Simulated assay, not measured.
Amino acid sequence: MDAAKAKAQEARDALAETLDAIEDKFNVPKRTGEFVDKAKAAYEKNPVPWIAGGAAVAAVVIGLVAWAVFGRDDD
């Protein structure tokens, strides 16, 4: 009987560990914080690609706005 109880306790402990791992993996605020920390570290290490990427995104947005405002509407 004690062996069965011990085995059941081991199974409960394994299940609890698995559920904790799943909860940790799907913890969005924690994952977002980790992503932000990695992005900050990458920017501090070499900001040039970040600046170039930001300029490219700005150029695309400005182009889309200009196209929407000044584009011909043939409909």
Score class of each variant (00 low, 15 high):
residue 1 M to E: 11
residue 1 M to D: 11
residue 1 M to Q: 08
residue 2 D to F: 05
residue 2 D to L: 08
residue 2 D to V: 07
residue 3 A to M: 09
residue 3 A to G: 06
residue 3 A to Q: 07
residue 4 A to I: 14
residue 5 K to A: 09
residue 5 K to Q: 11
residue 6 A to Q: 07
residue 6 A to R: 12
residue 8 A to S: 10
residue 8 A to R: 10
residue 10 E to M: 02
residue 11 A to R: 10
residue 12 R to N: 12
residue 12 R to D: 07
residue 12 R to M: 00
residue 13 D to F: 05
residue 13 D to L: 13
residue 13 D to N: 14
residue 13 D to K: 13
residue 14 A to C: 14
residue 14 A to W: 10
residue 16 A to I: 04
residue 16 A to R: 07
residue 17 E to Q: 09
residue 18 T to D: 14
residue 18 T to V: 12
residue 18 T to W: 09
residue 19 L to A: 11
residue 20 D to A: 05
residue 20 D to Q: 01
residue 20 D to E: 07
residue 20 D to S: 04
residue 21 A to W: 03
residue 21 A to I: 02
residue 21 A to P: 00
residue 22 I to S: 08
residue 22 I to P: 06
residue 22 I to D: 06
residue 24 D to R: 09
residue 25 K to C: 03
residue 26 F to C: 05
residue 28 V to L: 03
residue 28 V to G: 04
residue 28 V to P: 00
residue 29 P to A: 04
residue 30 K to H: 10
residue 30 K to E: 09
residue 30 K to R: 10
residue 31 R to M: 06
residue 32 T to Y: 02
residue 32 T to A: 04
residue 32 T to M: 10
residue 33 G to M: 01
residue 34 E to G: 09
residue 34 E to C: 09
residue 35 F to K: 06
residue 35 F to S: 01
residue 36 V to C: 02
residue 37 D to P: 01
residue 37 D to L: 02
residue 38 K to E: 10
residue 39 A to G: 04
residue 39 A to S: 09
residue 39 A to M: 13
residue 40 K to P: 00
residue 41 A to F: 05
residue 41 A to E: 05
residue 41 A to G: 03
residue 41 A to D: 04
residue 44 E to A: 14
residue 44 E to L: 15
residue 46 N to T: 15
residue 46 N to S: 15
residue 47 P to V: 02
residue 48 V to N: 08
residue 48 V to K: 12
residue 49 P to L: 06
residue 49 P to M: 05
residue 51 I to C: 06
residue 51 I to Q: 12
residue 52 A to I: 13
residue 52 A to K: 08
residue 53 G to N: 14
residue 53 G to W: 14
residue 54 G to L: 08
residue 55 A to N: 01
residue 56 A to G: 15
residue 56 A to Q: 14
residue 60 V to Y: 04
residue 60 V to L: 03
residue 60 V to I: 05
residue 60 V to R: 07
residue 61 V to N: 12
residue 61 V to S: 13
residue 62 I to L: 04
residue 63 G to F: 05
residue 63 G to K: 04
residue 63 G to P: 02
residue 63 G to H: 04
residue 65 V to I: 12
residue 66 A to K: 13
residue 67 W to P: 03
residue 68 A to W: 15
residue 68 A to H: 14
residue 68 A to F: 15
residue 68 A to S: 15
residue 69 V to K: 02
residue 69 V to R: 05
residue 70 F to C: 06
residue 70 F to K: 11
residue 70 F to D: 06
residue 71 G to E: 12
residue 71 G to L: 13
residue 72 R to P: 02
residue 72 R to I: 00
residue 72 R to G: 02
residue 73 D to H: 15
residue 73 D to N: 13
residue 74 D to N: 11
residue 75 D to I: 00
residue 75 D to N: 05
residue 75 D to M: 06
